[in-house]
Computed example of a mutant assay.
Amino acid sequence: MLSFIRRPARPSAWASLVMALGLPGLSPVGHAAPETPEGGYPPLGTDVMVPDLGSETAPAVIEDPLTAFQGRPSGPSVDTPTRPTAPAVAVGPAEPIAPPPVTHLSLMLDWYPSPRHAALFVARELDLFKERGLEVEIQTPADPDVPTKLLATSRIDLALTRQPLLHLMVDQDQPLVRVATLVGLPLASLVLDDAIGLEALEGTRIGHVDLDAENVLLASLLTHQELTREALDSPDLHFRLEQAMREGRVDGVIGAVRYLLPRALADDGLSTQTYTTESMGVPRYDGLILVANRDHLAQQREAIVALVEALEEATAWIVEHPDAGWALLARAEPAIDTPTNRAAWPEAMRRLSLTPAALHEKRYADFEHFLNQQHLVSETTPVERLAIDPNRQ
């Protein structure tokens, strides 16, 4: 529908000036007069038709778009077409980002630093502990029998030891439990002077290096050779087994690492014979394990899981980069960098466990049964009290 709106006559400012001066027909300087459309302009004051887009009866009215917002709240927090919501000024400095929490764990080695501890030192040097929110303090014991005792009395958080010693300690009601395996094969052996055969042990001096070497390995050797405990002398050598052999104070050592001591003595010109624990009738066992205090396991489980994951990643890296692994290990622990350890590195590396958390339950059950048969423990302990996979709840 069309509405009629009277268009008022509104002469332009120039036209008004021309008429005022009485100069009809002139146009502004520099501007040509517009051409008159065909049919001419409608006379001023003529009604013109404008389409009504609003309703059928009311004339079209163009409204101010801001009219709809009149009377409504306004301010910096109100979103309007002329004042969109946006912070104009920061109120005070931004809060500092708090560092992630760090869990401290104290861990004691079973002996002085050695290639068998490679996963621990490499994980530390590659910041694999730090990436998992851990600060791991690695300590060296003054006595190889000390770590498990300190762990049992809650003076440290974790300790490295051998599977045979774990069985003995649990049998004595100590709250220890295996949570990872760093070396899944036996490391101990009997090393004898080449002049002494296995059949001529009676009357000899066979030194031992730790408690389980005396109570399990030596006892098994005597049973295997049908000898009594009084048939030979067995002094405790602690760390001085190589020196004792070199000086002739003992005829042999039981519990020595099978790929280290014979090589070191050979470098000194001393010929020896090496007998594995398996050849003495001892079942295969985990050579190096990580143990925790069962009384604190619930609180420490998350941190232990993270630590074991770091050890697994470090071991994988060592296997993929054996030369770089040795270089990193030697730089981190200079005392490890000896000719004997360098020569033994390939053999030590092959024994590292690729899946530290994985638990060989039958191995622990079989070893416990062996100890019970040999009357080396008072009763048979269930595997779940001896060892766990920390990833299993």
Results as ranks from 00 to 15, higher is better:
383 V>K: 03
152 A>V: 04
256 A>T: 10
331 R>G: 06
369 H>G: 03
313 E>S: 15
339 P>N: 02
272 T>A: 06
386 L>H: 11
302 E>Q: 15
117 H>V: 06
133 G>C: 14
76 P>F: 09
175 P>D: 05
202 E>V: 05
154 S>P: 01
218 L>M: 14
390 P>F: 08
191 V>S: 07
117 H>L: 07
274 T>N: 09
367 F>K: 02
37 P>D: 06
56 E>W: 07
273 Q>W: 01
214 E>V: 04
13 A>S: 15
377 V>A: 06
320 E>F: 03
341 N>K: 02
238 H>K: 15
199 E>Q: 14
94 A>C: 09
26 L>W: 09
246 R>V: 02
146 V>K: 04
335 A>I: 10
281 G>S: 08
164 P>S: 07
201 L>D: 11
258 R>I: 05
341 N>E: 09
87 P>V: 14
34 P>A: 12
321 H>M: 05
325 G>W: 00
182 L>I: 02
248 G>N: 00
58 A>D: 15
140 T>K: 12
226 E>S: 10
310 A>S: 09
88 A>F: 09
301 R>P: 10
243 Q>V: 08
269 G>N: 08
47 D>C: 05
156 I>T: 10
2 L>T: 08
42 P>W: 03
248 G>A: 05
361 E>I: 02
254 I>W: 08
26 L>N: 05
265 L>P: 03
355 T>I: 04
21 L>G: 12
273 Q>C: 00
360 H>T: 12
285 Y>V: 13
78 V>R: 06
299 Q>P: 10
